[in-house]
Simulated assay, not measured.
Amino acid sequence: MNEHELLERINNLEYHQKLLLKLLNDPKLDLYKLIIENGITEQEIKQFYTLCDKMSKKLEEQKAEGYVYFHPLLHELSVSLPYKLNIREVINACLTQKLYLPLFQELVKYL
């Protein structure tokens, strides 16, 4: 293991430690549990949040245009997730944690 890989692992451990401290105060933070259990990095989660922001805007636009079928958004999310995460677990965790509620309340219908 080289120095760069070791530094990445230390950074990931520090990130997971911060999440664990938040979990101590609120055990309902299911997304944080998934992040830690699956070894997801902070950068991967930032990309996930950016994707959710983009998809939330798409959902609003599509609803304004009269769309009633949002399965393509679910597909887009599932192919964009880090490979270690399960789409069903992510959606349920985000709903429990009340993250991006309009988006995930719509997507859960297609599971």
Rank of each mutant, 00 (worst) to 15 (best):
L24E: 11
E8W: 01
M55R: 04
L23C: 07
K18T: 01
Q17I: 11
P72W: 10
L7I: 14
K33S: 10
I45E: 13
K33R: 15
Y83C: 01
K18Y: 01
G66D: 12
E5W: 03
V79I: 15
Y69I: 05
L20Y: 12
E89K: 12
K46W: 05
L31R: 06
T50F: 10
Y100N: 11
M55D: 05
V68C: 07
L81D: 13
Y15H: 08
L111Q: 14
E65W: 06
G66I: 14
H4G: 07
V68F: 10
T50V: 09
L34K: 00
S56F: 04
L13M: 12
E65H: 08
Q47S: 14
L85S: 09
K46A: 08
Y100R: 07
P82M: 04
E37R: 11
L21M: 13
Q97G: 02
L6S: 08
G39S: 02
L107M: 05
L95S: 11
V108S: 06
L24Q: 11
V90R: 04
Y49W: 12
K84V: 01
N92E: 12
L85D: 10
K54I: 10
G39F: 05
C52A: 15
D30E: 15
D53S: 09
C52I: 12
I35S: 08
F48W: 07
L111E: 13
M1G: 15
E42N: 10
T41E: 07
G39Q: 04
I91Y: 05
E60G: 02
L34E: 11
E14I: 10
E60P: 00
I45V: 15
T96S: 12
L85H: 03
I45H: 06
H16N: 04
L101G: 03
L20C: 02
Q62P: 02
L21C: 03
I10Q: 09
L59A: 06
E42V: 02
V68E: 13
D26S: 08
L19T: 05
K54L: 13
E8G: 00
T50R: 04
Q105A: 09
L74Y: 14
L107E: 04
Y49G: 00
E89C: 05
A93K: 00
N12K: 15
E42T: 05
P27H: 08
H4P: 00
L51Q: 03
H71D: 09
L6T: 09
K28C: 08
L31Q: 06
L19K: 10
H75R: 14
P82T: 01
K84L: 03
L107R: 00
P102N: 13
K63R: 15
Y32S: 15
V68A: 10
L19F: 07
T96Q: 14
C52S: 14
R88T: 06
Y67L: 05
P102E: 11
E5C: 02
P72C: 10
E76L: 09
I10S: 08
H71I: 09
I36N: 08
N86S: 07
F70T: 03
Y69H: 13
S78K: 11
F48Y: 14
L34I: 08
F70D: 04
V79Y: 12
L51A: 06
D53Y: 13
L74E: 08
V79K: 13
G66W: 11
